[in-house]
Design a protein around this nucleic acid. Structure first.
Lengths: 332, 332
DNA sequence: TTGTACGCGTTATCAT
DNA sequence: ATGATAACGCGTACAA
């Protein structure tokens, strides 16, 4: 391995001068600087980030923990985070939590072990983070679903607002028997519950009665689960003319499940999702959806970790992402 | 930060003994070991990987460079690589190359700068890697598309074989006017060309004539490009009864583009893709496709980097992934 | 403007 | 079985 020492010898200077050149510090003569740069080029020298890290105590890496990078939504999000972090001079390491509270807690511990400078956690399950007091003071930004009562920097999805707008939109189109397909609603503060609240609020506002048979809970937010939910809803015999799906991924499954039962979208049933993943514009029929500004979310999240790394004690900040309704064929 | 020194003091031993305990080395008495473990637990100590890396010269991280993590296929692949690497005790850092030769070369340089122990490169553009001789000897495994004439460890897609099987399948279903939608075919060895060869081979075998008007080139392998390709093909007036799409992502776009023009799949046109991304099972109609064994590919790739890290000079290995045809509704 | 000495946390070597 | 010491490559502080 080529070290600064080697470069210094090659250029006939001390390694401190090499360090100064590498870090663009001034106080180095032009001629000497040229000689050093030439020596670096010739030798193929690269800074050793481990050594630098050991000295400075910073790794320049932030972790991004998501349930499953394979789900389109998180791939999408990761791309934006990587880009935003790059602009701030950070690298991103991706962890998968498997959408389990244990995985999410692990990711935090892991992140510290690897000495990431901070962690962006897209938590869907971990609602009891106060059980992990050892992590206090670590730059941790929550991204997306859960609500943590202001204890963390948080960039939230417009869960309630978005779902309410979606439900209202279906009502505007004349739907009166609107089903909602969500994840399981075990805990109080989860994304699922917030979205369900938005749905209920819209129905109440319109004076549409709530039929418990139209509240469908999934085990996970997968395409397969969405497909089965749609089949069950149809098979149960309750008439429906609209479906609010908790995510676009689930909506893709619902779309397929309705097709399995010979129902047409939007003629027989209108369908709207949440997330606006790229695929949604290309399904047949294309999928209406609540479109949060993902780029904005990623940028805020990166900005928040960066700020917290610099100032660990500043008060926490809560954002709710802006969104718009993307109206496509599935609710025409 | 808690260091080994602190733990050593707390346990009343030397830091070398702590190191031995942490690394599960033997030659430590049971009683002492217990005392040390207790001290680690109480103090919340974590190894400093930078220091360890500085000493050992290994980071325990392998890079995975893909064109765009947002494309479902690469998200899918990344999930498998992360899992396989985890089993071998490696972490994975993801780089995006933007499907450009410059990005791919950057990823290699970058990977070395960050002192990854090795790099898995899913190269789609970089066909002249011999222009980067400085990288010789770095554990680099090519995954997927390109062919590099045996100069690197390589886990290849069954490009030619798979596309040939797909085309034959369409012919079996009675198609005689089969179009192929590929990326641009500028270079000799690219995935695009290999897949096109498979297509031509199948047609030749069946005695079906090649109509140049049915060879459609895309600027990129996106859904949008696929959609526009399908529209153009239909609008051009050449009758078609089958389409081979270069990837499932493109096929999703083609499916949509055919719908835009009022053509039914599979009644009017049959369609087959390549990759078997999860979405393909859920489209309406569901998408037939060439399904390479992604898990197998990820495992081989990780295995190859791991081996090359241990033995930099062993001869290179070439694999071609196994595949099967997933026959779904789009070719019924 | 350039050089020297030391410390970051860990591990290898050698000694006890 | 355990401990002392010296590296690993870089950056800070200070001296020249």
């Amino acid at each position: 391995m080529v070290t600064m020492e080697d470069v210094a010898r090659l250029a006939g200077v001390s390694k401190m001068t090499v360090s100064n050149v590498v870090n663009n510090r001034d106080g180095v003569g032009d001629l000497v600087r040229q000689r050093v740069l030439e020596a670096i080029r010739r030798s193929g020298y690269r800074v050793n980030l481990s050594a630098r890290t050991l000295r400075s105590g910073r790794t320049g890496v932030i972790g991004l923990a998501v349930p499953d990078i394979e789900l389109p939504y998180f791939g999408h999000l990761a791309a934006h985070v990587i880009e935003a972090a790059g602009r701030q001079g950070f690298h991103v390491a991706i962890e998968q939590t498997g959408a389990a509270a244990a995985g999410e807690a692990d990711a935090i511990a892991h992140s510290r072990t690897l000495h990431f400078d901070g962690l962006i956690l897209s938590a869907v399950e971990l609602d009891r983070l106060d059980e992990h007091p050892a992590e206090a003071g670590y730059p941790l930004v929550m991204l997306g679903e859960q609500d943590f009562g202001g204890r963390f920097d948080h960039v939230a999805m417009p869960n309630e607002e978005g779902t309410k707008a979606a439900t209202n939109h279906l009502a505007d189109r004349g739907c009166r028997r609107i089903a909602i397909v969500t994840g399981r609603a075990s805990d109080d503060v989860s994304m699922v519950t917030r979205r369900r609240c938005g749905y209920l609020a819209a129905l109440a506002e319109r004076g549409i009665g709530v039929d418990p048979a139209l509240l469908f809970s999934l085990d996970d937010a997968s395409m397969e689960a969405g497909r089965e939910a749609a089949r069950s809803l149809v098979d149960s015999g309750h008439e429906i003319d609209g479906v609010v799906a908790v995510t676009d991924t689930v909506a893709l499954g619902v779309l397929r499940g309705l097709a399995d039962r010979g129902l047409r979208v939007p003629e027989d049933v209108r369908l709207i999702g949440f997330d606006d993943i790229p695929e949604s514009g290309f399904t047949v029929p294309s999928l209406s959806t609540v479109a949060p500004d993902h780029r904005w979310m990623a940028e805020r999240a990166v900005e928040l970790v960066a700020q917290r790394i610099r100032a660990p004690l500043r008060p926490t900040v809560q954002y709710i992402a802006p969104f718009e309704l993307m109206i496509r064929e599935s609710t025409r």
